[in-house]
Design a protein around this nucleic acid. Structure first.
Lengths: 157, 157
DNA sequence: TATTGTTATACTCTATAACTATA
DNA sequence: TATAGTTATAGAGTATAACAATA
């Protein structure tokens, strides 16, 4: 249990980290904003899935997810095939064009981060990644409509 | 210099940290959204200042700063007195009501973070704060209209 | 009746550009 | 002519609620 001062500092750091996110967002292709990039990245990491699962991984409402997915689908980066097991659902899957875009994103992130974090060691980047993962995990699902909250200690994706 | 894998992971973590920010934002009073809270916090930490300085600390455009400032001024949390030295400028200063609101914010952040981060040690919170500060510092000013970029190694505020 | 997903609407935050007043 | 600040407009991201189709 930390002190008030540390919590206030953390609140301030989180508030200010938006500037970093915006900076990184500026390297994205105009057609592929951050929301789209997140969809592609998660489909790459976790393989094909349904809308509801993707919304859970993104930790945003499904209505928002639906719009992000429509954006990337319109550009041919994913396809949505009907789920034979449940006709209400659609299965989301990366297309070859989607993988091309992912490669492009990786290049751009890589060169931007290599530039800005030139003096960071491997270990420091790992530490930050680990702490951010833990932070997300600790907050768990603090979403408005708090879902069933499956008992788990997994790091969120 | 870290590996591509680590950079991609960092990009993903930053993308996902928005959920934590939103979770924390939900504890704020309806009248005082995150942008307003940031204005009050910085005026408290750094004392009275002009718009341009505040925009720099917030790392957002002055036009945006102007609107946040108008919001808190309308609610009586700060006042804007003319700068005798430069009639174009106004000096921003917390009011007693602004300090009351800050105390309220501190309470709410405190109880939310104490709840979510119950199993974090002091050191871990400090480490995360330090790494986030360093991250912001490394990104320095990657803003669209990159300002003069005063040569400094200070941690951004 | 409950669930999956979509759409309409509203709100917050941000950036760009045009503008006013002062330096 | 340049700078401090404001306002208008536009765009991204998100949430809530109403809705359609299916379970």
């Amino acid at each position: 249990m930390a002190a008030r001062r540390q919590y206030e500092e953390l609140a301030r750091q989180l508030s200010a980290i938006g500037a970093v996110k915006r900076g990184l967002g500026r390297v994205l292709p105009h057609e592929c904003p951050a929301g789209s990039a997140a969809v592609l990245t998660l489909l790459d990491r976790h393989g094909e899935m349904r809308m509801s699962r993707l919304a859970e991984l993104l930790a945003i409402d499904m209505s928002v997810t639906s719009r992000h997915v429509a954006h990337v689908a319109e550009r041919g980066w994913i396809d949505r095939s009907p789920d034979p097991a449940d006709k209400r659902s659609r299965i989301l899957r990366l297309t070859p064009a989607g993988r091309d875009m992912l490669a492009e994103l990786s290049e751009r992130y890589m060169s931007a981060l290599a530039h800005y974090l030139a003096d960071w060691s491997d270990d420091e980047v790992d530490q930050l990644n680990a702490l951010l993962g833990r932070l997300r995990s600790s907050f768990g699902d603090c979403r408005p409509t708090s879902p069933p909250a499956e008992q788990t200690t997994r790091t969120p994706v």
